[in-house]
Computed example of a mutant assay.
Amino acid sequence: MTTLISFLGKGRYEKDGYRNAKYRFDEAFVREVPFFGLALNDYLKPDRLILVGTSGSMWDVFFEREASQSDDSLLELIEAVESDTVDAALLDGHAGRLSERLGHPVDCVLIDYARDEAGQAKLLGQLAASLTEGEHIAIDVTHSFRHLPMLALIAARFLSRVRNVLIEDIYYGAYDMKDAASDEVPVLRLKGMLKMLDWVDALSSYDKDGDYSVFSGLLAEDGMPEGLARILESAAFQERVNHLEGAKQKLSASLQAIATHHGPLGSLFRPELEARVAWVRKPERGQRELALAEAYLARRDYLRTTIFLLEGLITREIDRRKGISKNRDEREEARKALGQDNKQFRKLEWLRNALAHGQRSQDNDTAKLLNDEDALREALKRFIRVLA
């Protein structure tokens, strides 16, 4: 089911009534109306219309065409709009008549002016209560109060999360962009702003858990060939199973694709994405492992911090010996040598074992660290500072 949500603000009243505008939707569809939502309803043909407005919004514009010349209820509504006293009971009958003309339900949601945080939160709750899971939603912000388009953007994201609705688009009839020659007003589609928020969310998600596969779908939507975009998912999996060389190979291929990608959002966020996977550009394996240890410490993933820190130290020791870092026997030999020569390395191993197995360590210092996150973080920083 598709639902159109149209926000009503104050209308601009002229001597002959509310000001009309000629809205151009596409090459074949133009409508001249006093309220953009009426034209958008004709264009989209939704299954339901939700009108959202305050006690002083231009409700009378929507309902004027349905009233008879002797309709006292319209006069009462006009007076209530002028005095900022519209209530839900006054809207019900008019909404019913408009429903009959449009051929689908019309619901009115009366809100306050959302001046503060409480009012803004209440508005989101009212919208959520008006929708059911799985609906397709279009939002019109053309005539809303000037602060409400910002809130509508947040509402779109909120509703997609809490009601699992699909936001088809956000529409705005840009009167200030009216073409002087044709007298037509362009219709802007603002869903791209939601896509920008998706990218911001992806950055936040990556900073939290280091899973760069969250960018895969976004890059595909931005025009990158899906096969190239999905390499990020494979690279993320390789890192998750601690196969760093496999992750490096695939991530390097992804970065090459990202560097030549010219989609609008991918280009905008490219520097941030490249900065977040800078570890892959480190020339030596040990350097890459140690860089990941610091990255996972920043994410409070203490087990992975200890794993990559230990592996980085072992790799560096093998490099010092001019050995082969991929050789299992050489890695075990280097690990034992480091444990014999360096008490701090042994302490780090004990900490890794305790984190991996979820058991209390026989070492008292290690056991204390597992009861105090601040102390654990400082200890890991010290291990990195002293050992790496």
Rank of each mutant, 00 (worst) to 15 (best):
S160W: 07
L159Y: 09
D374G: 04
D47E: 15
E135N: 12
L194W: 04
E76M: 06
L219V: 06
R115A: 07
G125I: 08
K326F: 01
R316K: 07
A88I: 15
R320L: 00
G17S: 06
R352H: 06
K178G: 01
M193C: 08
S144G: 10
G358A: 02
D222E: 07
L151D: 08
L355T: 11
L159N: 10
L4Q: 10
W279H: 02
L90A: 13
D112G: 11
R189N: 07
A80H: 05
L232R: 06
S160P: 09
A334E: 07
P264F: 03
K250V: 04
R48P: 11
Y43A: 09
G96N: 14
L251G: 01
E272D: 11
M196V: 15
L351Y: 02
A253L: 14
Q69E: 14
K195A: 10
P283S: 03
A138P: 08
V30N: 01
F215P: 04
S73D: 08
S252P: 12
G246E: 05
L355R: 07
A259P: 08
R331D: 04
E274G: 06
D329A: 11
V241H: 08
D372N: 14
S99Q: 14
E245L: 11
E82H: 12
A253K: 12
D374C: 02
R304L: 03
L290G: 05
L255W: 09
G217F: 09
G103D: 08
L310Y: 01
S234R: 11
A156E: 00
M150V: 13
Q120R: 15
K45L: 04
W199F: 13
R281P: 05
K250F: 06
E373H: 13
K45P: 06
L219T: 00
L376I: 03
D71A: 10
K22W: 07
R48T: 07
M193T: 15
F215R: 00
D72C: 07
G263H: 07
V214G: 12
R352C: 03
G339T: 10
K336Q: 15
N353K: 11
Y296E: 11
Y23G: 06
S205W: 08
I231Q: 12
M196D: 10
E289T: 13
